[in-house]
Computed example of a mutant assay.
Amino acid sequence: MSGSSTPTDGGPALFRLVRFWSRRWIQRGAQDRQPDLRHAQHVQVVEAVAGAADSPGEATITAVAHQLGLDHSGASRMVRDATAAGYLSRHGSDLDRRRTALHLTPAGHRLLADAHDWQRRVFDRLTENWPAADRRRFAGYLQRLADDLPHHD
């Protein structure tokens, strides 16, 4: 513990973890076997599209903007770039003819799977010295926190 933190002072600890993971994401590019993982923006968009597709409705640019906390034009550029890279396809919406629905391509599914594999490997390395029960408990708490995120927008 540093400074005046207490065992229940989760906010600063959470943000230290976020900074740690963000730096690892940026630094891992050269040694990563999968060069597409270096494109963090593509991974973010693919994650957002997959997340929006899992919720009621469809994955749209508006849904991506909401998931990533961006304005519509920023999300539109990221979607355009991920589409040009072959990770997304765009089709007319089944729900509203005026909208465009986004879908992961096979390359997008591979990118998402590769990103999740890398994330699991990092988690395993960070907790490798922990007892298995602690690892499972912590993973469960992280999943619970992540699952609760949409409720706090």
Results as ranks from 00 to 15, higher is better:
38 R>C: 08
109 H>W: 01
44 Q>S: 13
64 V>T: 07
32 D>N: 14
115 A>M: 03
104 L>V: 02
31 Q>T: 13
126 L>G: 11
87 Y>L: 05
85 A>T: 06
98 R>S: 15
135 R>F: 02
13 A>G: 05
6 T>I: 01
83 T>I: 02
40 A>M: 08
58 E>G: 04
109 H>Q: 12
97 R>H: 11
103 H>L: 11
73 S>V: 08
59 A>K: 04
101 A>S: 15
101 A>K: 10
40 A>E: 10
105 T>W: 04
19 R>P: 00
23 R>Y: 07
66 H>L: 13
113 A>S: 12
106 P>F: 04
52 A>T: 07
146 A>E: 05
52 A>Q: 09
22 S>T: 15
60 T>M: 05
12 P>H: 09
102 L>P: 07
54 D>V: 00
140 G>Y: 06
148 D>M: 11
92 G>F: 06
140 G>P: 02
67 Q>H: 13
51 G>A: 14
106 P>V: 02
65 A>V: 10
107 A>Y: 00
37 L>S: 03
54 D>G: 15
143 Q>I: 01
87 Y>G: 04
108 G>D: 03
113 A>D: 13
54 D>P: 00
46 V>W: 03
112 L>I: 00
84 A>T: 14
57 G>D: 09
103 H>N: 07
54 D>S: 15
111 L>T: 09
4 S>L: 08
78 M>C: 06
35 P>V: 08
33 R>Y: 09
11 G>A: 11
90 R>W: 03
7 P>M: 06
77 R>Y: 12
56 P>L: 06
107 A>S: 13
7 P>R: 01
27 Q>V: 04
46 V>K: 02
48 A>D: 06
121 R>T: 05
55 S>H: 09
144 R>L: 12
130 W>H: 06
81 D>M: 05
82 A>D: 01
47 E>S: 07
32 D>P: 01
68 L>E: 02
147 D>W: 07
74 G>P: 00
43 V>C: 09
84 A>Y: 07
80 R>G: 00
58 E>A: 07
152 H>P: 00
131 P>R: 10
91 H>Y: 04
133 A>H: 13
35 P>Q: 08
7 P>T: 05
142 L>G: 12
72 H>D: 06
124 D>C: 02
41 Q>C: 07
100 T>Y: 00
121 R>S: 08
29 G>P: 00
97 R>W: 09
62 T>E: 14
126 L>R: 04
135 R>V: 15
113 A>G: 09
36 D>E: 15
99 R>G: 01
99 R>E: 14
30 A>Q: 11
19 R>I: 02
111 L>S: 08
84 A>K: 14
15 F>P: 00
57 G>Y: 04
4 S>Y: 00
137 R>F: 15
43 V>T: 13
79 V>I: 08
46 V>N: 06
86 G>H: 04
75 A>I: 07
78 M>P: 00
64 V>D: 08
110 R>V: 05
94 D>T: 11
79 V>C: 08
